[in-house]
Simulated scan of single mutants.
Amino acid sequence: MSLTARSLMQTDVETVAPDDEVSEVLGRLARVDFNGFPVVEDDEERPSSAGDGHVVGIVTQHDLVHLFQTEDRTLWIPIGLPPFTETLTYAIDVSWDDLDLGIDLAKHAGRPISEVMTTDVVTVTPDTDLDTILDLLADDERDINRLPVVEDDRLVGIVARQDVLRAIRDQRVESKR
């Protein structure tokens, strides 16, 4: 049996909307065990799961943490309003001499995801074969960790590197039996 995106993908996909704020998405990333969200848009209310919208971008930890990257020191970013009940587990470099840091953090926290997301999203269809998926995930020029699966211009699932590795491992185990 040949593996395709349909057999590899997770269909319960957490997404964000283009108008979600950076601070909200950072908070959500701090609570999940993956490092990015497809950005989906729909004519109606904000999509809550796969199949509800079309992919307009992707936003990753790197995209968001990069907003606060400066030099010299480490800063832990608090989430929410005082008292900060949650903190992000990202250490980033910050110059303590930068008096505008607090203003910059506040300025970026309210920005919409549409301003920081990657819009050139690599997607696959449910029928994309394993070899193509491997080529995309192993591309030397792009650091792709997950591939949104799109059918009829709608998000129907996502294939992460872990999904592919797990499937290959399972296939190898099965062939040894």
Rank of each mutant, 00 (worst) to 15 (best):
P83N: 02
I79A: 06
A50R: 03
H66W: 04
L75V: 05
H54M: 04
H66L: 01
E71I: 00
L99M: 08
L88C: 07
L81F: 09
V116G: 04
G57P: 14
Y90R: 04
L105Y: 15
T118N: 13
P38S: 11
D120N: 10
D52L: 01
L75I: 04
P78Y: 03
I79E: 12
D43K: 15
A30W: 10
F37H: 14
V121G: 11
L101F: 15
T118D: 10
T89N: 12
T132K: 04
Q61I: 00
E86T: 02
P78K: 02
H108Y: 12
G110T: 11
G53E: 08
D131K: 04
F68D: 03
S95P: 05
S48R: 15
Q61A: 07
R31D: 15
H108C: 01
S23A: 15
I79L: 15
G27R: 13
T132S: 06
G57C: 10
V56T: 11
V124T: 05
R111D: 09
G57Q: 05
T119R: 12
L64W: 08
L67F: 09
G53K: 05
L67P: 10
E44I: 01
D42P: 13
E115M: 05
T118P: 06
A30Q: 13
D33C: 09
L67R: 12
D127Q: 07
W76T: 07
V56E: 08
V22C: 06
H66N: 10
F37Q: 14
T128E: 04
A91Y: 13
P112K: 03
P126I: 00
I77S: 03
Q61L: 01
T74Y: 11
T123C: 04
L88H: 14
R28N: 14
W96E: 14
K107A: 07
F84V: 00
I92P: 08
T70Y: 05
L99G: 14
L105W: 11
R31F: 02
L75N: 03
T60L: 00
T70N: 08
E45W: 08
T118C: 07
E41D: 15
D129M: 00
T85W: 02
V65A: 12
T128K: 03
I79P: 13
P38E: 06
G27H: 12
S23Y: 12
W96H: 12
G102H: 08
D63R: 03
